[in-house]
Amino acid sequence: MEKVMTEEQSANAWEPKIVAIVCNWCTYAGADLAGISRIQYPPNVRIIRVPCTGRINPFYILRALQEGADGVLVSGCHPGECHYITGNLTARRKFAALKSFLGYIGLEGDRTLFTWVSASEGDRFAQVIRGVTKAVRALGPARKLVKGI
């Protein structure tokens, strides 16, 4: 269980801000299921719903990092389960290259994370969010590519 914070504590303590860009058909529904099943997960994610992971311009991820997100999570349907048949398969290539490239220039690997969560995996969604929050928390506040630093 997550610790309960007072208002004063939360104003002083740093909490990771994570942008989760998720697909409408699987992960968003999975998040929904986590919600209606009342599964607890950290409140650090801000979810952005898109039609498909294939619709995500890699610049969304970079832009989120620039605007001060401490981590970006992209999640869609498992390969082979895409609502648009192949959207996540083309996205997979894009993200593989992007993640490798960002690692190459020296960005921490856990700032950008990619995973698959299906509509029936509410539990997995909560696990992913817990895992991502933990990983980003371990890295501390973002300092690279951030505007105004």
Partner: peptide, 9 residues
């Protein structure tokens, strides 16, 4: 590169 959470987070 796909993120796999450990069970229980």
């Amino acid at each position: 590169f796909i993120f796999e959470p450990k069970h229980g987070g």
